[in-house]
Design a protein around this nucleic acid. Sequence first.
RNA 1: UGCCUGGUAGCUCAGCGGUAGAGCAGGUGACUGUUAAUCACUUGGUCGCAGGUUCGAUCCCUGCCCAGGCAGCCA
Length: 458
Amino acid sequence: MRIKVRQALTAEQPLAGITIAGWVRTRRDAKGFSFVEVNDGSGFKNLQIVVDHTVPGAEALADTLTGASVLCQGDLMASPAKGQKWELKATSFQLLGRADETFPLQKKGHTVEFLRTIPHLRARTNRLGSMMRVRSRMAMAVHQFFQQRGFAYVHTPIITASDCEGAGELFRVTTLDPLAPAKLPDGKVDWSADFFARQSYLTVSGQLEGETLACALGDIYTFGPTFRAENSQTSRHASEFWMIEPEMAFCDLAGDMQCAEDLVKTLVKSALEQCSEELEFFNAYVDKTLLQRLQLVVERPFARVSYTDAVEILLKSGRAFTYPVVWGENLQSEHERFLTEEHFKSPVTVHDYPRAAKPFYMRQNEDGRTVAAMDVLVPGVGEIVGGSQREERLDRLVAAMTAQGLDLEAYRWYTDLRRYGTVPHAGFGLGFERLLMFVTGEGNIRDVLAYPRTPGHA
RNA sequence: UGCCUGGUAGCUCAGCGGUAGAGCAGGUGACUGUUAAUCACUUGGUCGCAGGUUCGAUCCCUGCCCAGGCAGCCA
């Protein structure tokens, strides 16, 4: 019976007559037998297989290089040498698939830049393999967090006809022939002839639809792909990424901030508990301060500061910033970094931002100049969460939409929420990849996605 | 899109105005319950592409391409 390497390595007692299959990480030859280290992706650690040269199939050992796939039967027994508790004493050896000397992955560290050139193979490395396992478990932890709190997992559309869901350039979705689109008499493209009979795009956020479902189901969350056509050339932007967007009816900004903090903390905690081997690896090879930092995140409450107070802190810091600190302007990356990495040295939630810098749907505060918005900033990554209490008062919302030049008729369904049984509600977006960067210490978003999509790369 | 840095062997890099080197990987041999094993020998390169300067360019100059970092946009 085949068992996975992870099970074998955590065995309580010797196991006779088991089968192990996996990919060879390294082979060492001794007199009369060979050590073959195998990883099958089930965990971080490899299983050492001892193959006596007299065992059936052992003649294939000469062709068994790093990267080959093998299948071995044998007995799991305590290893007589240091370095591992268990090893498999093979009774038969089978080379399933060769990997010749052109196999790009060596038994040594590779740069992430090189690994990005071989996305189809890099999941076989410790670094990407660990990332994919952490990613999988974090996704599960997201669902557990919300399901335990009674949130409904909803699926908002990926294709949308709303061209102004928030800031951000959109990818167009069309079946029109780009060389010969249907035209109107005046020469413009006739979008009524397109597949959806109107212009349509890939979603940049499920928030607006999420609000409608929250105003029916109470608490909802989405967790799905999101698309931004911005030409962002940074280590923390992808054109296709996954976002978690909870939306809560009968909830204000304070509840929103608490939910975001609880979520991030719970996810970090479950990473520490469920991915300890992977995180130890990232701590050793990617970011030496990772475990220490994550431990502090779990233990201490996040710092919380209003935008206005944050501006004060920045002005009083005596720091010479490249960009001036001015109330009313967006905080620059260097400002956010100073706050979270130097001043607070912890995650920090900044709330109540200037109204002028924020979109129409955010709730206007009584001071007349700020809105009930919040961002969670974390060391090393920056903004990981962005959210707000939504404007539930019809007159205020319509005024804001008008001021920002939106087509009121196109958003009739959205304003209807405020016409029929409006309630205070709030929500936020958590960037799943940015969370993974924070949890693993990985510095580039391209290394937390199996197949990263960025401008010029798909 | 702007600024900066870089492209030399499969990988990681050194080098330098006189047409190339190391480590690892691969090969051969030795040795060994080994642990990114070790030791010896060895295969392997249009020095990103195109021009220019020069007796001569991998090296200097220009353009382009590609990669990375930072900034803006945001999650």
